[in-house]
Simulated scan of single mutants.
Amino acid sequence: MTSASRTLWEQGDEPGYEVAALAVALLLTAATIDLALADRLGLLFDLTFVTVCARAALIVRPAAFFTVGVLPPLAMLAAILLLALVEPASIAHPDDGAVQATVSGLSAHAVALVVGYLVCLAVLAVRNQVQTNRSGSPAPRRTSSG
């Protein structure tokens, strides 16, 4: 790397598993706060989801891009599935079973899921391009041996 200071796109250095755990914890916290303010999961959760997706893509180390690249749908599924199991009325009809509540919850928050996923992938793509331009080679790939 040259003597120039690192840009926002180059500063991520957190391990992927830590970023994933933090993202899920933040989403569950946002869901808890959102449900404390209203009876149903709403806009606060959606906005937090998009913000967490963007931030996760910024703070992860380049070797863990894949982990964060697949994180948004899995994190959304985890939060919605947990709510479907413990409080289905917060995301669906109160009489719905866990599977139907999960499907209803995912469909109700599909816009946030798509926007969050696109933002995450866009940030990772920019970071990869900056890494390529700075070093002349793409960001390191995760190998199965390490």
Rank of each mutant, 00 (worst) to 15 (best):
S3A: 03
S3T: 03
R6G: 02
G12D: 05
D13S: 05
D13W: 02
D13R: 00
P15A: 06
Y17T: 04
A21G: 03
L27H: 05
L28A: 02
L28R: 06
A31H: 05
L35T: 10
A36P: 06
A36K: 05
L37R: 04
A38F: 06
A38H: 08
A38G: 05
L44I: 07
F45W: 06
D46E: 06
V50L: 01
V52N: 08
L58A: 04
I59L: 08
I59A: 13
V60L: 07
R61E: 15
R61G: 14
R61M: 14
A64P: 10
A64W: 14
F65G: 14
F66L: 14
F66H: 15
P72L: 03
L74A: 10
M76A: 11
A78C: 09
A79N: 04
L81K: 15
L81E: 15
L81S: 15
L83S: 15
L83C: 11
L85P: 15
V86S: 13
E87N: 13
P88I: 10
S90Q: 07
A92S: 13
D96H: 09
Q100V: 10
A101F: 04
A101I: 06
T102A: 14
G105Y: 06
S107V: 13
V111Y: 00
V114L: 01
V114I: 09
V115W: 02
Y117F: 05
V119P: 00
C120A: 04
C120H: 04
L121W: 09
A122K: 09
V126I: 15
R127W: 13
N128M: 11
Q129C: 12
V130S: 08
Q131K: 03
R134Q: 09
G136I: 09
S137I: 13
S137G: 10
R141C: 11
R141H: 10
R142A: 13
S144D: 10
S145D: 15
S145N: 14
